[in-house]
Write a protein that binds this DNA or RNA. Structure first.
Length: 494
RNA sequence: GGGCCGUUAGCUCAGUCGGUAGAGCAUCUGACUUUUAAUCAGGUGGUCACAGGUUCGAUCCCUGUACGGCCCA
């Protein structure tokens, strides 16, 4: 713990004195109103009418500003709905409270007030306070009122301070909640069942990613935090829940960056008797629902949600790389040489599919600003996707790119148990060869497919990136309440 | 993992071509009964991230460490 500064020491002394007078942490004050509601109901009115109505209110919240003028003072109280100005006169408070209680308050203290609504001569709805209580003493000075708290590290480590002081932070997380709600309603309206599947899995699956490993003591077995819910959701489709979705956390043991957090929120949904084209249509509908189908400003660029482009991976590579042609795309050696010329880290063992995907990430992905579906990914990099009827090397899969980043990944599901078993075996070989991101062989999932899973399509959408897009946030840390940070030395111990 | 940048008062930031640091807000004292970044007068507040090195002397130069930011993998 850092040594106390003078301001903190003063507050602690006040708390100690306050404890001596009775219960320092009471819980018997009940507000009757919220500031925001009062502004809606009484804002903009004229004072004569309001004074005549004599509206008495009780409000509770945090003292955020104070302007004292001798025997009277203005202050602002902030509750979950907004702010309300308080007008406090010595003559209106019970004996001694103005000098003994009000003047002793600090910015940040949580108080309860009672009083009557009125409008000041500058037109601001206010409460003329005749009852004042200190409910919680705040022991740390708050950041400055004008610049607020802007240091990114402190905002993330002490999100509670960020939320107290920065209105934009409060609004962003309310927006996030509303977006999740809207997505949920979108799927419920279409007959999807919301489910919850295991976060702790004995066999991790559903994505090419390195999992976190933990240990269950009583069962003495390793458990993995899920990298995706996919295989469980498809078991549910096999079980007859023909439309399911889940919005929940995934965990991937990878680096941290402006777009990656080790735990992140994923929307996954599955629909029987549909294919990847149906899901592209559904994705468009969802995004139009969320954006109003308009142009959206993101990080200084306009993104047009009125039209969604569709092109195959190969088409996108040819379109963005003049030096490539179809012959090169189909020849591993020529492709590898071309990739290396373009600065791609191409391994000797990389097949055509892997090379095409790496080339795509290097040369195309960041170019895709307006919503664009890229389709026809190589089977080689799509171990759970249905093979294309027209070309067995390709899968019926798409990814949606917006603002240069992957937002969604969907495909017609592979429901042929023998093909799936073969692909699991290939993945297991990669894993044995040291690929920490390769998939495990999941025999029970194969059994589920053997019972029969209806033809289906499924998709995952990264909710954090979606929220970033809709709130114009530059970093995933801005849309996570508590992004992962290394522990700071200052916070160690007590 | 690599490169570059940052860390100074509770907060937002200046600054010192190496001689122990400033502003605004906050806070304290005083004045003030319609203010709202209140105003006016006067104060307090610092291990200059941490640890070494160079130097008569380091917040400043050098090295390392921690944490963070941006870019790359």
């Amino acid at each position: 713990m850092k040594p106390q500064n003078e301001q903190e020491a003063r507050r602690r002394r006040k708390l100690a004195a306050w404890r001596g007078t009775g219960d320092a942490y009471p819980n018997d004050f009940r507000p009757t109103h919220l500031a925001g509601d009062l502004h809606l109901d009484h804002g903009g009115g004229d004072n004569a009418a309001l004074e005549k109505a004599a509206v008495t209110v009780k409000l509770a919240g945090r003292l955020m500003a104070r302007r004292a003028m001798g025997k009277a003072a203005f202050a602002h109280l902030q509750d979950c709905s907004g702010r309300m100005q308080l007008f406090i006169r010595r003559q209106d408070l019970p004996g001694g409270d103005y000098d003994g209680l009000f003047k002793d308050l600090d910015i940040g203290d949580i108080i309860g007030v009672g009083g009557v609504l009125f409008v000041t001569k500058t037109g601001e709805l206010s409460v003329r306070v005749n009852q004042l209580r200190l409910l919680v003493k705040s022991l740390h000075p708050l950041p400055e009122k004008f610049h607020g708290l802007s240091d990114a590290e402190t905002r993330h480590r002490r999100r509670y301070v960020d939320l107290i002081i920065n209105r934009s932070t409060r609004e962003l997380f309310r927006r996030r909640s509303a977006i999740v709600e809207q997505v949920r309603r979108f799927f419920l309206r279409r007959g999807f069942l919301e489910v919850e599947t295991p976060m702790m899995q004995a066999i991790p699956g559903g994505a090419l990613a390195r999992p976190f490993v933990t240990h269950h003591n009583a069962l003495d077995m390793p458990l993995y935090l899920r990298v995706a819910p996919e295989l469980y959701l498809k078991r549910l489709v096999a079980g007859g829940f023909e439309r399911v979705f889940e919005i929940n956390r995934n965990f991937r043991n990878e680096g941290v960056s402006a777009r990656h957090n080790p735990e992140f929120t994923m929307l996954e949904f599955y629909q029987a008797y549909a294919d990847y084209r149906d899901l592209m249509d559904l994705s468009e509908e969802l995004l139009r629902d969320l954006t109003g189908g308009k142009t959206l400003r993101y990080q200084g660029r306009d993104i047009d949600f009125t039209s969604f482009e569709r092109m195959t991976l190969a088409e996108s590579l040819l379109h963005h790389n003049r030096e490539l042609n179809e012959k090169i795309l189909g020849d591993a050696e020529q492709l590898r040489a071309a990739a290396r010329r373009l600065g791609v880290d191409a391994g000797d063992g990389d097949g055509i599919g892997v090379l095409q995907e790496k080339l795509f990430e290097k040369t195309v992905e960041h170019e895709l600003q307006n919503p664009t579906f890229i389709t026809a990914f190589p089977v080689e990099v799509s171990p759970l996707s249905r093979r294309s009827d027209s070309d067995p090397a390709l899968s019926d899969r798409f990814e949606l790119f917006i603002a240069g980043h992957e937002v969604a990944n969907g495909f017609s599901e592979l429901n042929d148990p023998e093909d799936q078993a073969e692909r699991f075996r290939r993945q297991a070989e990669h894993k044995d060869a040291g690929d920490a991101e390769a998939m495990h062989y999941d025999a029970d999932y194969i059994r589920a497919l053997e019972y029969g899973m209806p033809p289906a399509a499924g998709e995952g959408i990264g909710m954090d990136r979606l929220v970033m897009l809709l709130t114009d946030a530059a970093s995933i840390r801005d849309v996570l309440l508590f992004p992962l940070l290394r522990p700071s030395a200052a916070d160690a111990g007590s």
